[in-house]
Design a protein around this nucleic acid. Structure first.
Lengths: 352, 352
DNA sequence: AGCGACATTGTTAGCGTTCACAGACATCTA
DNA sequence: TAGATGTCTGTGAACGCTAACAATGTCGCT
């Protein structure tokens, strides 16, 4: 009259032993079936498979990780994933990781301090990640990272090239040279620049490329304005620049504003609004170029000349690098992969 | 002459036993220190802490998960996280999860089929997530989800209200009514609509809200155009609409195009470009409104009237719901949290 | 028949934690 | 001083899996 064991309770997930008993084999045989070991008789394999299906069995990942010493999990520290760039990287990165058989756990940073970064990494370590990708192109953060000497491989994205950390990056300098060169070739005497926050490595590299391009062309280097990547900050910078356009004939000491390279597309949008409101035509009176090629850029008024970064490729490359380090057991070394950006010319810089 | 055990090899991470030996206590005491158990003498605690520091010890999460049966990991299935909406939700969600002591693992969907969703969930299950948030507002996907009967709690985001699944959503219907009402109040005889893909629940709800608002106002309901959320598709729809504006006096059967409600901001951008190219002024000849309030919307030419969704709040609410279900052990029930959207009026709909 | 090689299966011992329980010792009460 | 209560600490057994090895059966060959 006894039922099949307990009938109530939040019955626990079936274990390998349960499957084994049902299939009439040992738990080890079940393990062999699950890991596709060749030496299992076909009939046995079928029997085990049936038992697995019937019980809805799934391997317990914790037990497995405990004995194999592999969590198959990678960590990512991301900055503001609301922006198109970081989001795309995360997308490509996750896909690549999954293809390699890893799971990705991401932590987003609220503040860009060394402490916040350490906390984020701590959090990931607590969960046993095997390696991490740090997507925080922020000077202080990367410097802190270099100090850290973590017990697992670390790969940075846009982490700069001065530090002994492996990483993937887009050639920001080249990108900036491309746009600046393009504007100069359009006949402008010089090119103004609205930069990103000075503690962002990407912003710095773009400033450098811009400056170098101007200097090489023998053009005057106007003082760069600084924004914070948001359209609003671009708008403010745009107002400032618009004032200079109006006053340019009267003003001494700064060259005429006829071309502006803005460090990202969002700020460029803000700049264009400011110009529009000031009655300046783009590209008629002022040419504008951005950076990133967000999906909206092609539809701005006017469509924006910009530099396309293949974010997805960056994400994928970072995973490939991380996985290869994982497999080879390398924790340090400063291997670098650089991805070339591409100039996309649209009507914000070209008179029709 | 014997050294302190082996000196070479990739020495394994220290374990609790190592700490215990160094501190001269049992492993259990170490465990107690780590979990802040009160009954540990202060001097012992200090000793253990020192040993932990010295060895750089970290608790092994797999072993811990194995015995406690808690992985403290939540899964997320996201659709295209490159878009502002999904990305923001992911952001808010991760932050909320971290505050609750959970780790988040995200999987992004490449295709929106039932099979792809099942694979994604399988992937997450393999890693032992305790519950998942499904952010795929796609009809087929959500329907498949309802069939699945998973052994852990599931919360949907924008999952529609016809199915017996718990979830969080923004009141899309209300949002659409707000914009449509706003446009009608602006004196337009009717409002055209550029919808999202028909198999997206959000798109459908917006169509419904728009239609209802028109019908309640006794306005004619023009046939909705359909896009795929991208600026390009909006551009195409815009060209179509621009054609109608030009031909409107001559054409029979469809009302005049003087106001358009576009189902998201990106498409609205495309529509505006098409209108600009057709020489139509916005809002002079045609008023346009979008949906989402992406950060760029305020800086479009002209700034776009739209509906703001608090994506971050949605992400947070979904985690709260998931965690509460986790704690109460609920797997089913169709609890719903609805978040109200807000109309943001800008100059794309208001004559100055 | 006897032996080796191979295929197939089972047995045992961890992996590094936490939990339940059992000691040891100190302190308080009668 | 005996007993009862606490406080602190240690011991042993899980948790569910894989790895190493041992045990069986099967086949072919001499």
């Amino acid at each position: 009259m006894s039922q099949t064991a307990e009938s109530t309770g939040p019955r626990r997930a079936p274990t390998m032993a349960d499957v084994a008993k049902l299939a009439g084999v040992s738990h080890q045989t079940v393990s062999r079936v699950l890991s596709d070991h060749p030496n299992v008789r076909d009939s046995t394999r079928a029997e085990v498979q049936r038992a697995i299906e019937q019980l809805g069995y799934r391997r317990n990942s914790s037990a497995r990780a405990l004995v194999t010493r592999r969590t198959l999990t990678l960590g990512v520290v991301a900055c503001n994933p609301t922006l198109f760039g970081p989001a795309s990287m995360l997308f490509g990165l996750e896909e690549a990781a999954r293809d390699e058989g890893y799971m990705v756990s991401a932590v987003t940073l609220r503040r860009y301090t060394a402490k916040a970064l350490e906390e984020a990494i701590d959090h990931l370590s607590d969960w046993g990640v095997e390696g991490i990708v740090v997507m925080v192109p922020h000077r202080a953060a990367v410097a802190a990272l270099a100090e850290l000497r973590l017990p697992f491989p670390v790969v940075t994205v846009e982490g700069g090239h001065n530090l002994p950390i492996a990483g993937v990056s887009v050639d920001q300098d080249l990108g900036a040279r491309l746009v600046t060169g393009h504007l100069l070739a359009g006949g402008h005497r010089t090119v103004w620049h609205v930069a990103g926050p000075s503690d962002w490595l990407e912003a710095e590299a773009r400033v450098q490329g811009w400056r170098a391009a101007l200097e090489e062309a023998g053009a005057e280097v106007p003082p760069p304005l600084v924004g914070d990547w948001t359209p609003l900050s671009g708008y403010r910078a745009g107002q400032e620049l618009a004032g200079r356009v109006a006053a340019s004939s009267a003003r001494r000491g700064a060259p005429e504003v006829s071309a502006v390279f803005v460090a990202n597309d969002q700020m460029a949008l803000g700049v264009m609004r400011a110009f529009r409101e000031a009655g300046l035509s783009v590209p008629g009176q002022v040419a504008i170029a951005g950076f990133d090629d967000i999906p909206e850029a092609e539809f701005f008024a006017p469509p924006l000349t910009t530099v396309r970064q293949d974010f997805t490729a960056v994400g994928q490359a970072s995973i490939r690098m991380l996985v290869s380090r994982l497999e080879s057991g390398t924790t340090d070394g400063d291997e670098r992969v650089v991805i070339e950006p591409r100039l996309i010319v649209r009507s914000s810089t070209t008179q029709i």
